[in-house]
Design a protein around this nucleic acid. Structure first.
Lengths: 147, 147, 147, 147
DNA sequence: TTTT
DNA sequence: TTTT
């Protein structure tokens, strides 16, 4: 038994890229930024703001919602899980990418809010089914990569 | 304004490695496994169990607690944030590691439970202060790396 | 747009009570205890352990899973939402009960773990559908009350 | 070992009421609304939107931040714990109130966002210390009640 | 490299 | 009414 849960509120770095698998399943990807506030330590050291970029992945209905309603700059609430996949780069070296597979999405930007109809996917009947078609970099071409 | 929160329940893959920075600050690292349950899709496809490995990082008091009480095989509840850092590998290629910086830890294994005294760090006066001393691979030697 | 999310790890106070609505839908209820650790303040004051009791409500498949596998004393991980309902007591005074409607459950007790097959409900097609049949105390009789 | 965690995103129903205890500690209270989306069941039943009201309580620095920056209508992200307390009403009947004790707050309304300086309290050295001074209704007078 |  |  285990739990793998991520909650993010942040800003969309680029318009979503949406691909459709042969099966017709939609996959959307985009970067999301979260930022730590700058602050000062007890000893006077200034710790500057730091931005963290997350590789966001949505499937099926959520991907279609993202395609319609999510834009660069939007603020989103996302709930999902951490997923690290590996691939071999051009030099044949194994590399890793950590992504957030989203289960639930809410729009926080005023313009966007209230637009998305049904922003939650059915759990367990979802991402993993098509995982093997999505993961590999080599059969997509470099410019087709989610990230 | 943003939120970057991770909640994990999983099993410790190896005993924690604990290092002490020059400042005396403790840093503990270990892998934690979470697993999706195996299940069968509507179309009959069997989706096998899949294990996700998380790179866990604890600081200061939490690192010292981990050094004393956390062992391979233990089940833990962890709350923290996602942090991706980059480093240059031996070939000079930029590589990325995603880690979970822990803010709060609870022991779920019966043996371990109830032992840890104060399993929560003081937020904001914490990890980032010593970040530059910890991140780089090059000044530590390969066998000194958290992961 | 909003979020109402609760995450609990605690111990079951009593065996679940399970009822079946006329529609055949199962509803399980039980109390769950969470405890703050005792600790000492900077000024020396001892703050004792404090137990919080949560009114847990599960529906449909989750209720049936609880009926089979959840017992007094078990440790559970629960994810759900807060729900406050009102009813009129015997004296006709409006009273409030706050309950946790569970979306996802995991067994943490070693004996129980691994037994439950599909511990997540389909979101949005769930609790609210039968809410009006469940809420009122007056049409159930006092001994039929969830709590 | 246990976990009692609440995550809310919702709208402030009224300007915060802030009181100062004899010790100088600030306590802020206000209602926060979260709403389920309306939706239609498989059988055609319309399930209307439903608003849930949460009794929010903040202490110390967070209460002072709320006093300065939080207003009716603002959208907030809150992280905290569930706490149910009892009191005797005018008729001497024991009554219960469930409150959310906040550990962390973020402003989501554009106007407010970015204003609050340090929106996280130090855990474990916090609410419980002054609990007995705050809980009872009877020594405060009805108009002094948080809710 | 963990657990069920 | 549970656990450590």
């Amino acid at each position: 038994m285990s739990v793998n849960k991520v909650i993010l509120i942040g800003n969309v770095g680029k318009d979503p890229e949406v691909r459709y698998l042969d099966s017709g399943v939609a996959v959307a990807t985009f970067p999301l930024a979260t930022s730590d506030r700058a602050y000062t330590l007890a000893n006077g050291t200034q710790v500057p703001e730091r931005t963290e970029w997350h590789n966001i992945v949505l499937w099926r209905g959520l991907a279609e919602t993202a395609e319609k309603y999510v834009h660069k700059g939007d603020k989103l609430y996302l709930e999902g899980k951490i997923r690290t996949r590996s691939y071999d780069d051009q030099a044949g070296v194994k590399r890793y990418v950590t992504e957030i597979f989203v289960d639930s999405m809410e729009m926080l930007s005023p313009k966007a809010a209230g637009v998305a109809p049904q922003a939650t996917v059915q759990p367990n009947v979802q991402q993993q089914s098509i995982q093997s078609q999505v993961a590999p970099a080599q059969d997509n071409g470099a410019d087709d990569l989610p990230f």
